[in-house]
Amino acid sequence: MPTEEDQGYHFGVIRRAIDRIDAAGGAALSLDDLAAEMHMSPAHFQRVFSRWVGVSPKRYQQYLTLGHARALMRERFTTLDAAGTLGLSGSGRLHDLFLRWEAMSPGDYARHGAGLTISHGYFAGPFGDTLAMATDRGLCGLAFTEETGRAAAFADLAARWPDATFVEAPDRVAPMVEAAFSRTGETRLHLIGAPFQIKVWEALLAVPSGHVTTYSEIARAIGNPKAVRAVGTAVGRNPISWLIPCHRALRKTGALGGYHWGLPVKRAMLAWEGARADAQAG
């Protein structure tokens, strides 16, 4: 298992590789050429990719193309259960991680976090520098700062709960982050949002790793099929990225749509999951 430092470094390489593959305009790049662009030896570049995702750089290129999302729509589209099967708290599996989640009550949400202490810290994760926040009930915020910067990411999450007390305490948050990124054990989530938002986020938890769904499918699943635009807004307001997999929500056309922490991060997440799913199936 790569260390946190390895994970952050690996994502930096992947982020540069995305730019280089895009610049190639669809032309396949050899291992030697791509490694040279990353200022790495072919052998080192191969090892980085293999440790990060489990497939070769040559094979991984197909998962970083803009057409990958459309392929997922054709091959791994997930329909969601009807609203009656979705509650406001529960548990479930996400890749190899066992999640338990608890939703804030509407009354607590209306108090804008008053009386709530939220610990936070920055960590190296599989998708770059990561801001994590937690209450005593579990992780309540997970943001990726590579595209936005740390200050903007912190301001964004903190504004969700303006009357909460924020304490820099990475040691308190670290065990939760370790469980989340190691994909083993149990991680608790504390969903802090309006009831409609929480319903949307819970629907996202039903989408398996390596699969995708659409904003309209989520709207149907929560019993409000005309609320596609509101669903899109709620998806974008998801404070616990990756674990609540808003990156798996696409437009009906197969277009990526937006991603709160930057489209390169979303593409890398979809590519990582797709490649691992195929490697495990093979």
Rank of each mutant, 00 (worst) to 15 (best):
residue 224 N to W: 01
residue 82 A to E: 12
residue 104 M to Q: 04
residue 244 I to K: 02
residue 120 H to D: 02
residue 218 I to E: 10
residue 50 S to R: 11
residue 236 G to Q: 14
residue 96 D to L: 07
residue 173 V to F: 11
residue 201 W to V: 02
residue 88 L to R: 08
residue 193 G to H: 11
residue 250 L to A: 02
residue 233 T to N: 14
residue 271 A to K: 04
residue 19 D to C: 00
residue 30 S to A: 12
residue 24 A to N: 05
residue 164 A to D: 04
residue 230 A to P: 05
residue 231 V to P: 02
residue 78 T to Y: 04
residue 96 D to P: 00
residue 181 F to K: 00
residue 84 G to W: 10
residue 230 A to V: 06
residue 203 A to C: 10
residue 200 V to L: 12
residue 232 G to M: 13
residue 52 W to S: 15
residue 254 G to T: 05
residue 190 H to V: 03
residue 239 P to T: 12
residue 171 D to C: 01
residue 123 F to P: 06
residue 42 P to Y: 02
residue 211 H to M: 03
residue 253 T to M: 04
residue 159 A to N: 06
residue 24 A to G: 10
residue 5 E to T: 04
residue 170 P to W: 05
residue 175 P to L: 09
residue 89 S to K: 13
residue 175 P to R: 10
residue 202 E to V: 05
residue 60 Y to A: 14
residue 170 P to F: 01
residue 28 A to S: 15
residue 41 S to M: 15
residue 47 R to G: 00
residue 61 Q to G: 05
residue 243 L to S: 03
residue 138 G to C: 08
residue 240 I to A: 00
residue 116 L to A: 06
residue 263 L to H: 01
residue 178 E to K: 12
residue 9 Y to L: 10
residue 140 C to I: 12
residue 125 G to D: 14
residue 181 F to Q: 11
residue 178 E to W: 06
residue 100 R to C: 06
residue 108 D to A: 15
residue 258 G to R: 06
residue 154 F to H: 13
residue 2 P to E: 13
residue 260 H to R: 15
residue 84 G to Q: 14
residue 152 A to E: 14
residue 122 Y to E: 09
residue 6 D to V: 01
residue 176 M to C: 08
residue 162 P to M: 04
residue 72 L to T: 06
residue 110 A to L: 10
residue 135 T to H: 00
residue 211 H to G: 00
residue 201 W to Y: 08
residue 65 T to S: 14
residue 115 G to D: 13
residue 214 T to Y: 05
residue 91 S to A: 12
